[in-house]
Amino acid sequence: MSALRQDSLFDGDYPLTREDFRDIAAMLYADARIHLTDSKASLVYSRLIKRLRALNLESFADYCALLREDEDERAEMLSALTTNVTRFFRERHHFEHLSSRVLPNLLAQARRGGRVRLWSAGCSSGEEPYSIALTILEQDPRAADLDVKVLATDIDPRMVARGRDGIYAEAALAEDIAAPALQRFFLREGAQRRAGDELRKMVAFRRLNLNGDWPMRGPFDVIFCRNVAIYFDDATQGALWEKFADKLSPGGWLYIGHSERVDGPASARLSSAGVTAYRRNAEPSGDAP
């Protein structure tokens, strides 16, 4: 067995060496703060081998050399290695909580002329932010004409484009959305449906790296960031929770994934208030808002 294969983490047609894997992991961490352990070697191999073949490269070492020089290929790598598992109303208890506990006061505020902002951070292909908008419209069918907006962001530009297009297979939609809502808010296009004007009016899609600068001013009344932080190390998670606390209005809500928990310094500002739901504490008297 060659020295190359002895050092392979995954020994396929193109051996993935420890050095190759560590180079890829370091670049992914630098770009997106996504933490890869050696246990992810087979995933990295299966996702990136398609890129090597498409580019007619002979080794992962050649691919790493290309990544160091080509920002576009770095973006391709990020798209290949980020997981986009989603569906409409995934983890439905959050939407039920949003509907029963949070929206009544927010929509009353909007009907008085107030501003309401919600954020889907890590929106993937759009199912989550459109589910948020559908929940709002179920509460108030006139909400699209109020100052109620949903920001949808993701690091992967391909996912942002898919969400902005808003086209989904009708069969998949029908599994999670009641027929009346499906008929009203999605336009039929053959075997697919496209998000209609009311949904598009409420949801704005933008590319955003959660571990980079956040240009939006906020504050937000509600933030969904579910099953994203699990890909970050502890320090990155702690910093993310603090940034969310900064962007939430006092009393605002943060929904996170079923295997995630807020800890670190942000836990003094975000109190557990339901199943993977946290609420921003009011600032102590005399502190800056």
Score class of each variant (00 low, 15 high):
residue 276 T to K: 12
residue 150 V to C: 02
residue 165 D to K: 14
residue 131 S to W: 11
residue 116 V to Q: 08
residue 136 I to Q: 09
residue 33 R to N: 07
residue 10 F to H: 09
residue 12 G to F: 15
residue 246 D to L: 11
residue 191 A to W: 00
residue 267 S to T: 10
residue 267 S to K: 15
residue 64 C to L: 08
residue 159 M to H: 10
residue 32 A to P: 04
residue 66 L to A: 10
residue 159 M to C: 11
residue 95 F to T: 14
residue 61 A to N: 08
residue 229 A to C: 07
residue 190 G to A: 05
residue 172 A to D: 09
residue 233 D to F: 04
residue 228 V to H: 01
residue 78 L to P: 10
residue 186 F to H: 13
residue 168 Y to I: 06
residue 23 D to Y: 15
residue 5 R to S: 13
residue 18 R to M: 07
residue 283 E to T: 10
residue 93 H to K: 12
residue 203 V to H: 07
residue 183 Q to G: 01
residue 170 E to S: 14
residue 175 E to C: 05
residue 48 L to G: 00
residue 231 Y to I: 01
residue 200 R to F: 01
residue 111 R to L: 11
residue 31 D to Q: 10
residue 29 Y to C: 02
residue 226 R to F: 03
residue 251 G to I: 13
residue 184 R to I: 03
residue 99 S to E: 02
residue 189 E to A: 10
residue 276 T to E: 03
residue 14 Y to E: 11
residue 14 Y to N: 08
residue 75 A to S: 07
residue 268 A to C: 07
residue 62 D to K: 11
residue 181 A to S: 01
residue 165 D to N: 08
residue 149 K to E: 01
residue 42 S to C: 01
residue 177 I to G: 06
residue 214 W to Y: 13
residue 246 D to R: 09
residue 24 I to Y: 10
residue 266 A to F: 01
residue 194 R to Y: 03
residue 248 L to A: 04
residue 186 F to Y: 15
residue 24 I to W: 10
residue 119 W to H: 09
residue 15 P to Q: 06
residue 190 G to N: 00
residue 39 S to N: 13
residue 124 S to V: 09
residue 105 N to I: 05
residue 143 A to R: 15
residue 145 D to E: 15
residue 222 V to R: 14
residue 105 N to M: 11
residue 30 A to Y: 14
residue 36 L to P: 08
residue 205 F to S: 01
residue 142 R to P: 03
residue 37 T to Y: 12
residue 138 E to Y: 02
residue 214 W to R: 00
residue 56 N to V: 04
residue 118 L to W: 07
residue 33 R to W: 08
residue 60 F to Q: 14
